[in-house]
Write a protein that binds this DNA or RNA. Structure first.
Length: 674
RNA sequence: GCCGCUUUAGCUCAGGUGGUAGAGCACAUCAUUCGUAAUGAUGGGGUCAGAGGUUCGAGUCCUCUAAGCGGCACCA
């Protein structure tokens, strides 16, 4: 006697099914349309294959293309397997390793056979074609449970060293699954998969690039070839995605930086930025803004040396831990050897003293703190610096303004007592919030917890982590709205850190702000204050930044606004463009009035047609274009063409000046002028 | 640092199989004074990333170096 399975569906109904039946059977029982549309099934919350039999009574939700997140994950995973199968079909002897789904597609790491060169982008079209062939063949994907020993034997027999290595590390006795594609190819995989390769849309994927990647992400392991693809449910989605990529490329800060004449980079100073007048104007506005913010919240600004004796860096611990990322210079006048035939080179004397360029400002700030005697009554002391630092980053890491070797932080260190930590961190959360809101960013707050390699006792870490948690809770940000999340193992070796991740206009995230509670450096550099009891105590040192670095933050702003910066940040806020040269006099008058009102304005008196001027300044992303012709000159008005708006507005000059003055007011000053 | 690709005028790019560089934009000069996204003509401009090699001859082939791009690793 068999007992029927009770399968509950999302609409609340319950279906009775024969034992051994699967979600596919339920779908078929409901209707042929659903049976065709179903891609996989959510059984008691777990995504499973459509034709994997039920284990018992279950709650079932069938997944179709309408359940986009689940469906995308499924098809991308399938594309990854298909990719691996295609590569092996085309290039026998290729070893396969891993191939997960990604945010927009999938990849698979493979090792080309020794007999041929590593794969290159030239191989991609052939692989794509093979994948389409496999989709067309509509090979059934079949799940099978294997023993670990069988799996290892299979991989070793096939010469799949990486797979075998992985299988050997899987726990003994665990149920391991493989998926057959047809009956001639298989990969070990937890699944789930679609019922057959034919469920994939042959026109909804594209192999995009080839890259190197270390086996298991470890630099000391062999390097594999990673083949990336983007994969979607249908052709339309793929097309949309490719379009989005093009749009993102258009707002690339490196491209816009050149087009808008903001900055440049060149070989002789790679990783350091040459700021041009327009780009540096953005910087100056940001710096002035940040100074106002910090002045208003109890920070005092200092300036500390760029070069310090290496002995100082030894004491702070950086020379031991961080030397490979530091630039060092001999403390001497270089003697250039001009006698030899070869190129003249400075010579360094053997006993030269070495100095290092600061990779961070913290030690110098402790040194300032240590001057004189500090009473607990003086705490907290907040020392800020627009600190220019140099770090010798791995060359492959450099990227436009986003990762550079010379950068300036909006840095500050808060020296406070144990009791003051939570309040100081809370106040920082508020300050950071007000800054990000002023730029129109939304953000997530994350807490990076103790890493494996770390200084200090467990008790200290417990305490330090809890302080940050408490402070964020008090600021009302430890919740979903602020994307609150804890990241185990991601903290610095000396302290846990709070991180602010901005989300830009096209959904990318950027880590910028941070605050860290440090008890190690004050100890190493012997910073103390005199407490209420007359004894010496260690202050806690909070490292914090909001922009992170000016370079990076400007890069993010450029991409976020696609170059169309808010008026207060725009390097040129308005251009006055006369239509005919008879009006040059009036144009200069308009320019003078705007200048007097503090507006960054230029007039374009070139002998060019107005169409040409409009086009040029629009492309240059000037927020306001003041067009003046005979009519305006007679009436004392201006025709304002605002970037991004279709209609122009004609208004009296005085009114226009007032309007622009208000538009150009930085957000932190807006309330006072309103 | 690792893998792959790239490097030609200020910018974007063209230059089958080696025979001594080309376009558009930009720039300069001249003409044009033209009301909302490119007026026309003329002209100047390049040690083809750098070094070495093969060759009668190298932008083109080879080696090395550097930087850039896409990833990986790194981001204390």
């Amino acid at each position: 006697m068999t007992q029927l399975l009770k399968i509950s569906l999302p609409d609340g109904s319950v279906r009775e099914m024969e034992p051994g039946s699967s979600p596919a059977d339920v779908a078929a029982a409901i209707g042929p349309g659903l049976a065709k549309a179903a891609l996989a099934a959510r059984v008691d919350g777990e995504v499973r294959d459509l034709n994997r039999p039920f284990d018992g009574d279950a709650e079932l939700a069938l997944i179709t293309a309408r359940d986009e997140a689940d469906a995308l994950e499924l098809v991308r995973h399938d594309y990854a397997h298909l990719l691996a199968e295609a590569v092996q079909a085309l290039f026998p002897g290729t070893q396969i390793t891993f191939g997960p789904a990604t945010d927009d597609g999938f990849y698979y790491d493979v090792m080309a056979p020794a007999s041929r060169a590593p794969f290159s982008s030239e191989d991609l079209p052939a692989i794509e074609a093979k994948m389409r062939e496999l989709i067309k063949a509509d090979k059934p994907l079949r799940r099978e449970v294997w023993s670990r020993a069988d799996l290892i034997a299979k991989w070793e027999a096939d010469g799949e060293a990486f797979k075998a290595e992985w299988a050997k590390e899987l726990p003994e006795g665990e149920e391991l699954t493989v998926y057959w594609s047809g009956d001639d190819w298989l990969d070990m995989c937890r699944g789930p998969h679609l019922a057959s390769t034919g469920k994939l849309d042959p026109d909804a994927f594209k192999l995009t690039r080839i890259a190197g990647a270390y086996w298991r992400g470890d630099q000391s392991n062999p390097q594999l070839t990673r083949i990336y693809g983007t994969g979607w449910l249908n052709k339309k989605q793929l097309k949309q995605h490719l379009h989005n990529l093009e749009e993102a490329a258009k707002r690339d800060h490196r491209k816009l930086g050149r087009e808008m004449d903001l900055f440049h980079l060149q070989e002789e100073a790679h990783g350091s930025v040459f700021w041009h007048p327009k780009g540096y104007m953005i910087w100056r506005e940001l710096e002035a803004y940040m100074r106002r913010k910090m002045d208003a919240t109890g920070y005092r600004e200092i300036k500390t040396p760029q070069l310090m004796d290496v002995r100082q860096w030894e004491q702070s611990g950086h020379w031991g831990k961080y030397a490979e990322n530091m630039f060092a210079v001999p403390d001497m006048v270089p003697q250039v050897d001009e006698d030899g035939d070869g190129p003249a080179k400075p010579t360094v004397e053997k006993d030269a003293d070495w100095m290092a360029i600061k990779p961070m400002n913290c030690p110098a700030h402790v040194i300032v703190f240590k001057q004189g005697i500090t009473s607990y009554r003086d705490l907290p002391i907040r020392l800020g610096e627009m600190g220019c630092c140099h770090r010798n980053e791995p060359h492959g890491a450099l990227h436009g303004l986003m990762r550079v070797r010379q950068f300036t932080q909006d840095d500050a260190h808060i020296f406070c007592t144990e009791e003051q930590v939570v309040e100081e961190v809370r106040a920082f959360c508020e300050l950071a919030n007000s800054v990000y809101k002023d730029f129109g960013f939304t953000y997530h707050v994350k807490l990076a917890l103790r890493p494996e390699k770390r200084f200090g006792s467990e008790a200290d870490w417990d305490k330090a982590e809890q302080e940050l948690r408490d402070a964020v809770a008090e600021a009302g940000m430890a919740n979903e709205e602020f994307g609150w999340e804890e990241l185990p193992g991601e903290g610095a070796f000396y302290a846990p850190k709070l991180e602010w991740h901005l989300t830009d206009a096209i959904g990318r995230t950027w880590q910028v702000g941070t605050i860290q509670g440090d008890r190690v450096l004050p100890d190493r550099l012997d910073a103390t204050y005199v407490g209420e009891d007359g004894g010496r105590h260690r202050p806690v040192m909070l490292h914090r930044a909001i922009f992170g670095s000016y370079e990076r933050f400007i890069g993010i702003l450029i991409e976020h606004f696609a170059g169309r910066l808010p008026v207060w940040l725009a390097p040129v806020q308005a251009v006055v463009a006369p239509i005919v040269s008879d009006i040059d006099g009036y144009a200069s008058e308009v320019e003078a009035k705007l200048k007097a009102a503090g507006i960054r304005v230029e007039s374009d008196l070139r002998n060019e047609k107005i169409n040409y001027k409009v086009r040029e300044h629009s492309l240059a992303k000037v927020p306001h274009l003041f067009v003046v012709g005979k009519r305006e000159a007679e009436e004392g008005t201006v025709a304002i063409r605002t970037l991004g708006e279709k209609e122009q507005r004609v208004m009296p000059l005085d009114e226009a000046v007032a309007m622009l003055k208000q538009a150009a007011t930085p957000p932190d000053l807006a309330d006072q002028t309103a």
